[in-house]
């Protein structure tokens, strides 16, 4: 099972959104979008609910972040295992 959420991250000042975007884009499990003023959209994914929450809390604890709101949730309960990106020889 893999969960994907769409978030709006509210930062306290407009000029903080870009810096935050750079921090978030360094992670594989976060895909930030283009900031709109104090609001930065992002998609996050994790393999279960608990980890998704942890990721959510981690983003919320970044400096300059005022709120993290969820606007979209998608869960994929396919039981077929995904192939490894680089199959072992």
């Amino acid at each position: 099972m893999r969960l994907t959420s769409g978030l709006i991250i509210s930062v306290t000042r407009d000029d903080e959104a870009a810096g935050l975007r750079a921090v978030l884009s360094a992670r594989d499990d976060v895909t930030p979008g283009e900031p709109e003023g104090r609001w930065l959209p992002a998609a996050i994914e994790a393999e279960d609910d608990a980890r998704l929450r942890e990721l959510h809390d981690w983003i919320a604890s970044r400096p300059g972040v005022a709120f993290v709101d969820v606007v979209h949730v998608n869960f994929d309960d396919s039981t077929t295992p995904e192939p490894l990106l680089n199959p072992l020889p």
Binding site: G6, E34, G37, A42
Partner: peptide
């Protein structure tokens, strides 16, 4: 599978971006 995952992520981001735009106004 990869495509589906990518699709999920893009859908989520699109929804978030739309909402952020609306929120900013």
């Amino acid at each position: 599978m990869i495509q589906r995952r990518e699709f999920n992520r893009m859908t989520a981001l699109a929804a978030a971006a739309a909402a952020a735009k609306a929120r900013a106004q």
